[in-house]
Design a binder for these strands. Structure first.
Lengths: 260, 260
DNA sequence: CGAAGGCTTGATAGACCTCAAACACAGTGG
DNA sequence: CCACTGTGTTTGAGGTCTATCAAGCCTTCG
């Protein structure tokens, strides 16, 4: 799927529904704890929220621009992306989401979606009704703050991506993204040293980096030829993290993670 | 100043300090009211916050990447920008701020700045100490929500800019920004029909659009030649808003403004 | 075995950048 | 009053990066 290809619009959001009082919220607790100290009561408050689990098929949308959701989705497994498209059908992925992310808390405060949310791989999403979540944030300001903080970190990540899109070369953008994913996946134990599963196509990567698929392929070859990375069978390996970080001008500070 | 020029780093943040119990907060009240219904008590709460007014000279920084501010700044007058730079000194402006904006509420929740805040023109900033603001957001969840909402709208704007940077042509990006500024300035009565003061240089515009100064100049000529805009003596006129919006693929929805 | 999706390569075009110089204008000091 | 300076805008020429178009290849899967 190239930037110009509008085929991604055509797919519906078929999904399998299941109801469950689930441990998926543990991922959220874990994530929030990583940046914020939660009390036991607050922890229980979150774990007690009723959720609805849904499986979304790869390539299908979870929410679409213009929708007015009445629930927030938490990524339990799989890869999810936020994206927008121009009227000519050129797509830009603005963020990638993995286990523990709540890519649309914003729907709690902004009624209408200004972007879409799609599953890149098969994904499992835990939905929490706004009606359940809002009372919690109102009565527990610190929990609201924790979520607010999450959205601020998202915004910080946007800023860094903007710097990449506006001022860095194709190779640097790519290396930068690989570094970012490494850091974020490591934070939820999805990276093994400097190696992780990256189950996306080069075309999707192009949509995230603002590049054509062909150019992604060639830039990738540059990085491989420089011995910085390898990527095959859906696994990405960073051979020399130090060097890749310097080359890509990557500084993890914008992720606002606590020291690991 | 081109994207590659690092001279902007060299300027300190000299400023003139004045203390005042001020009406500048009225700008904030007005802004929050535009997207959120405030009760009288909440309104008073905001107006009662002690602020410190500061004049910042054009080109000087208000806060810098790495700083750990203990206060938030509200723009009272002038033009302010958020920016980041690569290690090669290429600068990317990630947002522009005008009267009523609080570009760094985030410092309330994220201790260290991941970007800098600079004055483009002479600007007046009203600072509110975190120690004063935090108790208010903790005791008045709806006020916290109003501010949270502001930050979410910022994030939405980032997403749209990312779409511009990644997938739109230089001319479209430029037209898009002119449309956005028109809408935002109009919301605070700083635009007269489709005309407004735009006191920035082409170089700054390039830093915002991810373009070189030379290319900004040429793209500008294209827009002028097409009869879409004119820009002289610091005033920008949109001659045919409808056509400019279509050309630039501008849809004000991402600004989440209430219907005017 | 054929079809489909993803990856790779080649050739060509165009968008945008860099370097360099000229121009316009306001402010300054002699 | 006029040269002079500084800042911002404009123009030209040439080069690089990235896109587009088109085709071939490889793997998976029915």
């Amino acid at each position: 799927m190239t930037g110009r290809d509008a085929s991604f619009r055509l797919q519906g959001s078929e999904c399998l529904m299941t109801h469950q009082i689930a441990p998926p919220m543990a991922a959220l607790v874990r994530k929030l704890s990583a940046i914020f100290t939660l009390s036991d009561e607050e922890r229980q408050m979150i774990l007690g929220l009723p959720v609805m689990l849904r499986d979304v098929r790869p390539g299908h949308d979870i929410v679409r621009e213009g929708d007015r959701p009445d629930k927030c989705g938490l990524v339990v497994s799989g890869w999810v992306c936020r994206y927008k498209a121009t009227d000519e059908g050129r797509r830009q992925i603005v963020s990638l989401h993995i286990r523990g992310d709540i890519p649309d808390v914003q729907s709690l405060l902004l009624t209408e979606m200004d972007h879409s949310l799609g599953a890149i791989t098969a994904a499992q999403i835990a939905f929490i009704a706004h009606d359940r979540l809002r009372p919690v944030t109102r009565s527990h300001p610190r929990l609201a703050e924790a979520l607010w903080r999450e959205t601020l970190i998202d915004a910080s990540t946007y800023r860094e991506w903007m710097l990449c899109l506006g001022r860095r070369s194709a190779q640097q953008r790519m290396g930068h993204l690989f570094c970012e994913l490494n850091a974020r996946l490591a934070a939820v134990d999805l990276a093994d040293k400097d190696e992780y599963a990256l189950p996306i196509t080069q075309s999707v990567l192009g949509d995230a980096l603002g590049l054509s698929m062909v150019h992604v392929n060639r830039s990738l070859q540059d990085l491989r030829a420089d011995g910085l990375i390898s990527w095959s069978q859906g696994r990405l390996k960073i051979h020399d993290r130090e060097r890749l970080q310097i080359f890509s001008d990557f500084n993890p500070h914008y992720l606002h993670q606590l020291a690991a």
